[in-house]
Design a protein around this nucleic acid. Sequence first.
DNA 1: GGAAGTACTTTCATATAGGAAACTACCGAG
DNA 2: CTCGGTAGTTTCCTATATGAAAGTACTTCC
Lengths: 123, 123
Amino acid sequence: MKKSAEINTTQVCRVRMQAITDAMSLLTGKWKFHILGTLIEGNKLGFMDLLRELDGIGSKMLSKELHDLEMNNLISKTILNTKPITVQYSITEYGKTLSPLIDALANWGINYRKSLYEKSELN
Amino acid sequence: MKKSAEINTTQVCRVRMQAITDAMSLLTGKWKFHILGTLIEGNKLGFMDLLRELDGIGSKMLSKELHDLEMNNLISKTILNTKPITVQYSITEYGKTLSPLIDALANWGINYRKSLYEKSELN
DNA sequence: GGAAGTACTTTCATATAGGAAACTACCGAG
DNA sequence: CTCGGTAGTTTCCTATATGAAAGTACTTCC
């Protein structure tokens, strides 16, 4: 006789759903995790560094994603008045709180690929 | 003098990058985490149940996403020959391995919202 | 036999994401 | 004064994602 939602109407679940939506709104797109991961590994990188590290990204995408991440306080940008002006992007303390999540995602992906490989070995 | 990538050329980083790409290819979209999360909470749900639980989703999207998730062995579908034919979707054992990731995402989202709230309280 | 329920699919339309290529602007080396 | 490097922006285009609404097919309840 259930004609309406039963599970996700509990307060706990609604909060969780909202939280997932929130988190995803900051992290969607093809490149955000890659950018964050790269900045966690290599502290302080310039625009051109990132362009080289992130295989396949274009300058427009990179520029846009860096803005988004900066707006959300996940990365920070420092402009240095060096001879040819340079810029340093780095992860913020708050951005570092994503480390476990990125690790979890990467590890899951590694195991996923492993499981596909094992499946194909059965032939 | 670095004119080429330095960080992501290490084997470890390339594997990580690939892993993130792999994982995301299965999990992108507005609804996949919500569907998986709902199926983890409420074991065995019908199509209409999910349509009610997932506030805002349309039947086309739900149908497509369920197919995708089933193709990737993250959920399973059982057709019951009940009076009006019913269907049961449930999470697979493999799908359950995403639980920690979904929890991490949800918890990060909860803290994110909390941090926004704290910021706005400073006014 | 009409309403309502299960489980989708189809059609049409729009929004957003993503990419290639060219362009700007500034600087130093040779 | 041209080449190459830094750090982007702009334009144009295509692909994918998402959504609303209606349709299909089958069944049971009243």
